[in-house]
Design a protein around this nucleic acid. Structure first.
Lengths: 216, 216
DNA sequence: GGTGAATGTGGACACTGTTCACATTCAGTG
DNA sequence: CACTGAATGTGAACAGTGTCCACATTCACC
């Protein structure tokens, strides 16, 4: 679109740095997204970054937000592929299952992004009161909607809805973390798949209060 | 015991560095345990550390192991305090509940140690086959034992035992991580307590396949 | 007592984030 | 069109980090 080479002004350095940061984070996690490497890759002096980010941390946070969106996209894609032909209740449960499995798969296939998405340094702590909604990330909102839909479809008793999002997110996020960092890490993929499925089923059972009826 | 000041040889530099590393990790997490700071605090030249650790990473891993033991101790202490007078099945479930709550409390009160305990850099990747047992950390073994005891006490159906450890650990570890890094972080302690209790109950329900009978 | 191994030191290098003063370019006003 | 202030990028520098090298000191043992 614009002229290919600009001598001085880059034009959109901020997004270029975020893009480069995403590439670095993808293979090396949040620690790999370094100010000097990102600016070097873009072909700009290290200090140029300071015109667009207050801090290295600000860059990492911007990259983290993108990684969160990538996670949300992966979940949405998997949920959208839910097959037709199920009863409303079955479909709602199947969607919740897909949210969990997509979350875990993303952590395993895009480990660097997953780590980056949940990287937080405790700066910006007391900048006023932080309401929960301010920091709700895209994947979490997807989970909330899915659970609400389960209630609407009669797949989840309304009195079991409160706090259900935390139980689900905890189980899935915890397993994702363990599968990426913990002792499961070296197991063959097929074993991890089985464990993931088991954990997700257990989480669904825990939330609904009763195991799903077996069958196809 | 030994002479208070040694001009050259420290005597037990390795443990001194680990101890200093623990102190640094406690407030600053794994990133704060730096080779130069640890050696400085001990009063020794930075390179002295290389006689006892191959790497900065090796030091951090040694500190991480200590942090894992601290976590295991916190869990054991809480489990040991299980009141008497419950039926064997009730006691077994109560013990599992205490494992989970102690785990979460440790993460919240000793955040730096908790982060350090699960800090892993992917070095030593292909040094031969790594069996699961090799890397099983102390807290995980505690969880396994507790679940086995539940089966013995009739509080958990034997066919529900397989994989139960992963469901439990995932839920509890995931919530701990969220409570420390995620959006729950800024909530008042009472709210986090309620969420933690809810998550643990849900995990227990998920594993057993049916909600616990209400009542004390 | 002497000798080799263990341990600690000092200096250096590359890399990082960050700050300061300065250079260049853009955008808009007279 | 010229000028001027704001936006943006540069260069040199400083402190801090991990790590390697050659060297110094001390310990343990023959």
């Amino acid at each position: 679109m614009t002229s290919p080479v600009r001598a001085y002004h880059h034009g959109d350095l901020r997004h270029a740095l975020i893009g480069e940061g995403l590439q670095l984070a993808r293979t090396g996690g949040p620690a790999a997204v370094t100010l000097r490497e990102a600016t070097r890759a873009v072909g700009v002096s290290p200090n140029a970054a300071y015109r667009h980010f207050a801090d290295r941390d600000a860059l990492v946070r911007a990259v983290a937000r993108e990684a969160q969106l990538a996670l949300a996209a992966a979940i949405t894609s998997r949920v959208s592929a839910t097959p037709a032909g199920l009863s409303p209740a079955e479909a709602a449960i199947e969607r919740l299952r897909r949210v969990g499995l997509a979350y875990i798969d993303f952590a395993r296939t895009e480990r660097g992004w997953f780590e980056t998405a949940f990287f937080t340094q405790d700066t910006h702590a007391n900048d006023g009161i932080v309401t929960l909604d301010d920091e709700i990330v895209a994947p979490f909102r997807l989970l909330m909607d899915t659970l609400d839909a389960m209630v609407d479809a009669g797949a989840l008793a309304p009195d079991r809805r409160p706090y259900a999002e935390w139980a689900c997110w905890s189980a899935v996020h915890g397993f994702a973390d363990i599968a990426v960092h913990g002792p499961v890490r070296w197991q063959p993929a097929s074993v991890i798949d089985a464990l993931a499925a088991s954990v997700v089923e257990s989480a669904i059972t825990g939330v609904r209060g009763t195991p799903d009826a077996p069958g196809s």
